[in-house]
């Protein structure tokens, strides 16, 4: 029989196809991630001038900003994957959402930790109940809840259904929390480091290495999620094989 031509993105939602494709893809993504991270961080740490106000402490920006970006984007990715699971019931997307959660959580924790380390010399305090910081703390709680729910339910499909709905509801409440926190306390944190408005941006000399590190973090995230999704698929396959074993 002739292999059907790949015509739709959904073909990759087949676990087998996904494993085959990522077999080839993963090393490249991982390598690119490594190159971007090393270039971005070395460039940023050693080949940019100190800030006239903040001195060398500004250099933590090359970790802080990318990890903070990825913390939010990871949740967005989980939201999209959850929607795909709810609407089209492609199992790989449910497993990808599951795989992304711990990565997102770690990114959030890195952003919080680097923020605290940066905040100490700048604001004179490790922690302030600033809206951005507080939002990230709340985001951490959402990640914990999501991961805990996945871990608590034995049946894979049930867990996928429940966590998807939790992710949808959680996203709405996460946005609400963001506005609530903004309303509750106007803070110390500077505005966006990156935006389309040229004037608000950090200077070019910081900007370019920052972009490279962000690309590195994005690629790192993709590589980790692919890797973890493959692990989840194989774990699922093991369970399916065991179930078949029990039957015979």
């Amino acid at each position: 029989m002739k292999e059907p031509r790949v015509t739709s993105l959904w073909t990759y939602a087949n676990p087998k196809k996904f494993i085959e494709t990522t077999d080839k893809l993963l090393p490249w993504v991982a390598m690119l991630a490594l190159i971007c991270l090393v270039t971005g961080l070395i460039w940023g740490f050693f080949f940019t001038p100190d800030d006239y106000r903040q001195g060398a402490t500004v250099k933590i920006i090359y970790i802080h900003v990318p990890s903070a970006l990825m913390a939010i984007n990871a949740w967005l990715m989980m939201l999209v994957a959850s929607l795909v699971w709810i609407v089209r019931r492609h199992h790989v997307s449910a497993l990808a959402a599951r795989a992304a959660a711990p990565v997102g959580l770690v990114m959030t924790l890195i952003a919080l930790a680097t923020g605290a380390i940066w905040g100490q010399p700048m604001w004179g305090t490790w922690w302030a109940w600033d809206p951005r910081l507080t939002s990230f703390l709340v985001l951490t709680l959402f990640y914990f809840g999501y991961i805990a729910l996945w871990a608590a339910i034995e049946n894979d499909d049930t867990a996928a259904d429940l966590t998807s709905i939790l992710c949808l509801v959680g996203s709405v409440f996460a946005v609400l929390s963001r506005y609530a926190v903004n309303f509750w306390n106007q803070g110390l944190h500077q505005g966006a480091s990156l935006s389309l408005d040229e004037k608000e941006n950090v200077a070019d000399v910081f900007y370019h290495p920052l972009l490279v590190s962000i690309a590195g973090f994005v690629l790192l995230f993709i590589a980790l999620v692919l890797l973890r999704t493959r692990t989840e698929i194989r774990a699922r396959r093991t369970r399916a094989l065991l179930a078949r074993e029990r039957m015979n």
């Binding site: 087949n14 399916a240 078949r244 039957m247």
Partner: peptide, 15 residues
């Protein structure tokens, strides 16, 4: 009594 993995498209895809 079921003898094969009848109809379970998902687990099927893994085997």
């Amino acid at each position: 009594r079921a003898t094969t993995m009848a109809g379970d498209a998902f687990d099927e895809a893994f085997l």
